[in-house]
Design a protein around this nucleic acid. Structure first.
Lengths: 144, 144
DNA sequence: GACATTAGGCAGAGAATCGAATCAAGATAG
DNA sequence: CTATCTTGATTCGATTCTCTGCCTAATGTC
């Protein structure tokens, strides 16, 4: 850990910062029963619903782990499981009311944090950072 | 998870990619008894030795968790605990032989991966990315 | 229809994480 | 100097997370 940090490590720091901020705001807003691991899964549910396998891929955990997380999130009222009309084997994880409300809080915090970052780096630089990370994603994201 | 990904999420993807590559190479080289969590702590030990509290801060875990990780790493021969000459309360976590050898493998993989990334982004862009992330670190790293 | 594949779940074990309390060694104030 | 406060590390106990392996059901293929 001597010398300048590599890009992976720098990304760790930045990512954790965002995660911690969002989780703190969620807890402050009364959503204090969602853990980091659950939050990572919850954050990857999209509006039309997401298959469990896709959640697992996005959150970089096994299907079993995702099942476990969704179990908890479902019991806590954040999501529901509904049948996937396009495939009888699959089920879609969709937001429940509490999940939508929490998502709203998370979105707001993300915006605030991005705003802070933009103030620090400048608009142009922030846009450039986003672009570079997106390009890096092309070769680092195993799932599209 | 609809729409464009925020910088935090992009960082998650990049960071995990690096971590997975390093861990895979470590396992392939015979260091298959170190887990991701242990690796995160091990990667933050520096040459002159590092205090447990500092390891905990850098890896973003509690001191208890760091103690647990170092216990395992010590038992597996990656590190040793030695007294801190500057403070009798503290102990320094230093590399043992196996840890040094593993570090060498990890360093090599990091270099290879950074090389791949540089090939994809270009030299200038990669340097810019590193600079931007470093500047972002100024306000996202709670520990200096 | 037989066979492989894919989606999801169950069970069990092991790993990781934390909160609370403990202990020892500095640091500080009077 | 001793009483108190702070700091570094650890232990204990409980909870959460994560994986390997196996299983069922639905789909797709030949």
């Amino acid at each position: 850990m001597d010398g300048p940090l590599n890009i992976g490590l720098l990304c760790f720091i930045v990512q954790r910062a965002m995660e911690d901020r969002v989780l703190a705001d969620l807890a402050a807003a009364g959503y204090d029963d969602v853990t980091i691991a659950q939050g990572r899964v919850l954050a990857r549910v999209d509006a039309k619903g997401t298959r469990l396998s896709d959640l697992a891929e996005r959150a970089r955990v096994t299907r079993q782990t995702a099942t476990f997380m969704v179990d908890h999130l479902e019991r806590a009222g954040y999501v529901r499981r509904v049948p996937d009309p396009s495939d009888a084997r699959a089920r879609l994880v969709v937001f429940a009311e509490r999940g939508l409300a929490a998502q709203e809080v998370a979105r707001r915090t993300e915006a605030v944090v991005q705003e802070e970052w933009t103030r620090h780096l400048g608009r142009r630089a922030t846009a450039r950072l986003h672009e570079l990370l997106s390009r890096l994603r092309e070769i680092t994201d195993p799932y599209r």
